[in-house]
Design a protein around this nucleic acid. Structure first.
Lengths: 214, 214, 214, 214
DNA sequence: GATGAATGAGTATTCATTCAT
DNA sequence: GATGAATGAATACTCATTCAT
C-alpha cells in the first residue's frame, strides 16, 4: 500500500532486502567496523528496532551478505559444472561466470574478503563450510580435466584452484565498472592466463622442478 | 642474508620493534578493530604512555606494518629485477622471492589485505603510492619479456600482474608453515602456473571461446 | 479447601491466569527487570498483543501478583483472627497459616520482597496500603493478647509484628519444598520461638543488660 | 592537591569510595535496575570512563557493597563471639551489634536484600560463601548456649539463626533514623523477643509439638 | 622516558509499548 | 480478540587519546 518509500516503480522492496543493500554498500565503502548500525538503518530509512526485528545482530547482516553471494555462486557453478561440454569448456565457462558475478556483486566480494574474520566463530564456520563446498566443486572440475589428459598433473589441483580464486578475488581491488575493461574482457584474459597455465605443456625450458637451485 | 635486523643476541629488542611485533600478531589474530591499544602494550610488556612515545596513534602501527613489508618486498624486487638473466628468469626469481617473503611474513600479509581500508585517507594514499611503485616494477619486468618475445601480448601486462598478485595474496588465506608444502613448493607450482600461462603460446584450440558459449 | 481457583480439569486455564503464573515464575527466577515481556508471553504460549489486551503494562503483572497474594493472606488472617479461641491460640494459628501459605506461594513471596520497589509510585502506594491493613490486623491480635495478660507489654506490639514478619519473609530465602522440613515443621518451630519470646515472662536474669555491656 | 572536590574538610575521598557511596545511595533509593551508570558517575562528579577504570562492571559495585558490609559484620561478630562472657551474653551482644551496624548501614542492607539475585553467578556464589561463614559463626554461638543448657534444643539452631536474621533484615523496611526508636531501642526489644524465645522454657501450655492439630 | 588516572565520544543492543491490520 | 512489525528512548560498556606527575 505505502508505495511512497519505493525507489523503483512497482512494489516497495521488503525491509530486510533494503537493509542488506544499505549494509553492503556501507561496509564496502567504509569497512564493517567503521559502519555503525545507526548509519545502516538511516540509509535504509528505518529505526534500529526495525533492523533488530529482522537481524539478531550486526554480524547477521555480514553473514547474510556472504551467504547470499556464496549461494548464488555455488548454484551457478553447479549448473555449469554439471552441464555439457568437455571439462576444459566447462571450466572455462565457470571461470567466465564467476568473474561475471564477481563484477556484478563487487561490493559483496569486497566485504567478503575484508571482513570474514570478524564473524563470530560459529558463523565463520558456517561460511567456511559453504566456501569449501564451492572450492571442492571447482577442484573436481580441474581433476576431470586432468583425468582426460587436458590439464597438467604436476601441480596439485587444490593449489591451482587457490591460485585461480586469488586472482578472481583480487578483481575487487582494481576493477571498476566504469573502467575500460568490461567483465567479459577481464574474463577472457583471465581465462587465457589461467587455462594456458593449467594446460598440459611440453618442456618449456623454464620449468624443471628438478632445478637444484629451487 | 638479512641479518641486519637482528640485535645483539640475548639483548632485549628495541621497544618499537616489540610493539610492532605484538601489534602484527594481534591484528592478524583478532583484526585491527578488535585489538585494543591496551592489549598491544600488555603483549609488549609496557604501558600505554610508552607506546604513545613512539607511535602517535594506533593507526601508525598499522601504517608501519604495511610500510615495512612493502619496503622489504620492493627492495628485494628491485635487486632481482635489476640483476642479471633474461626477463623470464628474473620474473621467475621475483615470483619465487615474493612467495618466500610472503610466507615468512604471513601475519603482515594478512593484516595488509584485511585492514588497509581502515587507515585514514592520508596514510592510505601513502601506502597505495608505495604499492603502485612495487606493482610498476613488476609490470616493467613483464613488459621486458613481451618485448623480447617471451611473453604473450594478447593480455594487458597490468592485468597479468594483478592476476599474479591476487594469487600471491591469497596464499595468506590457505598456506600454513606447518603444512605439507613449504614456501619453495608453493613457489615452484605458482611459477609453473603463472609463467606457463603468461608465455606466448600457439593456438590451443580453446581460445577464443565460440561466441555461442558466451 | 481452596479449590475455587481450579478450572474444569483438562480445560485450558484462562489466559490472564496463565500469564500471571508464567510471570511469577520468571520474575522469581530471573528478577523483574531481567524478564522481558517477550519471555513471559512465550512462556504462556501467546503473543504480546494478547497480553496487552489483559494487562495495560508489565508492572500490572507485578502489581497483580502482590495484590493476589495479599488478598489471599488477608482473607485467611481475618478468618482466623475473627474466629474462636484465645488470642494466643488465634495468633498461633495465624502464624502457622501464614507460613503455610508462604511456602505454598514461595515464588510470589520472593517476587514481593525483591521487586516491590520497582512498582510505579501509585501502585506502590496501593500495595503498601493493603499491606498495612494486613499488618494492623496482626497487631490487633497481639494487642488482644496483651490486654488479656498473655503477652508481654515491654515491647511495642508493632515491633513484635515486624519481628515476626521479617522471620516469615526470610523463609523464601532458605526454605525449599524438597528439603527435610515441611511447612508445618517450620511453622511449629517458628511458633515456638515467636510465642515464647512474646509471652509475658518473669525476670530471666539476662534482661535488662547491664549498662556497662552496652 | 586539588582539594576542591572534597566535601569533608581534610582530604578528598578517593574516587572508588565516592563511587560506592553514590551507588549505594542510588541503589537504595531507586533500585539497582533503575539506576543507570550515568546517574552514579554524575552523582560522584566524574565520567563513566573513570568508573570503569576502577570497577569492571556495574555489578562490581553491587558486589563491593555486599562484600564490605559482610566483611564488617563478620569481623565484628568474630570479635564479640570470641570474646569473654557466657554464650548468652555474647549472643545478646552480637544481636545488639548487628542491629547497630544494620541501622548504621541501612542503605547497604536494603540493597543487599533486594538485589543480591542480580549478581552474576560467580559473584553471587562468592557472596553466599561469605554469608554462610557469618551464619555459621552465629549458629556456633547458639549451639554453645544449647550445650551449656541455656538455650532450648527443641528447634534446630540453624532455623533459629534464620529466624533471627529475617527479623534483623526486616529492619531496613520499617526503621528510620529519624523515628522514635534508636538502634539501641530496637536492639533491646529484639534481644528480648529473640532470647526469651530461644531460652529453655518449661511447658508453656502452647507448645507441645505433639499436638495432633499441627 | 614512562606512568596511569581520567576523558568523552561512540557502540551494539534491549525492550516496553503502539497500532494498522 | 489477536498479530507482529516498527518505534524510540535508554543502557552498559569500550577505547584511543591526553596530561599531570
Amino acid at each position: 500500500m505505502a508505495q511512497g518509500t519505493a525507489e523503483v516503480p512497482g512494489r516497495a522492496r521488503p525491509l530486510p532486502e533494503r537493509l542488506l543493500e544499505a549494509a553492503t554498500r556501507l561496509f564496502a565503502e567504509n569497512g564493517y567496523e567503521n559502519t555503525s548500525v545507526q548509519e545502516i538503518v538511516a540509509a535504509a530509512g528505518v529505526t534500529k528496532g526495525a533492523m533488530y526485528h529482522y537481524f539478531a545482530a550486526k554480524d547477521d547482516l555480514l553473514y547474510e551478505i556472504y551467504h547470499r553471494l556464496l549461494a548464488l555462486q555455488t548454484e551457478r557453478l553447479e549448473r555449469i559444472a554439471g552441464g555439457p561440454g568437455t571439462p576444459e569448456e566447462r571450466l572455462r565457462d565457470a571461470v567466465l561466470d564467476v568473474i561475471d558475478t564477481s563484477c556484478a556483486h563487487l561490493d559483496q566480494l569486497t566485504v567478503f574478503f575484508r571482513s570474514m574474520h570478524l564473524l563470530p566463530e560459529d558463523k565463520r564456520r558456517a561460511v567456511r563450510a559453504e566456501r569449501r563446498r564451492y572450492h571442492e566443486r571447482f577442484r573436481a572440475l580441474v581433476e576431470e580435466g586432468r583425468r582426460d589428459g587436458t590439464f597438467r598433473t604436476d601441480a596439485p589441483a587444490d593449489l591451482a584452484v587457490n591460485f585461480l580464486f586469488g586472482a578472481v578475488h583480487q578483481i575487487s581491488t582494481w576493477w571498476h565498472p566504469d573502467g575500460a575493461l568490461g567483465p567479459r574482457d577481464v574474463g577472457r584474459y583471465y581465462v587465457a592466463l589461467f587455462l594456458d597455465g593449467l594446460r598440459r605443456a611440453g618442456d618449456t625450458g623454464v620449468w624443471p622442478p628438478s632445478a637444484a637451485a629451487l
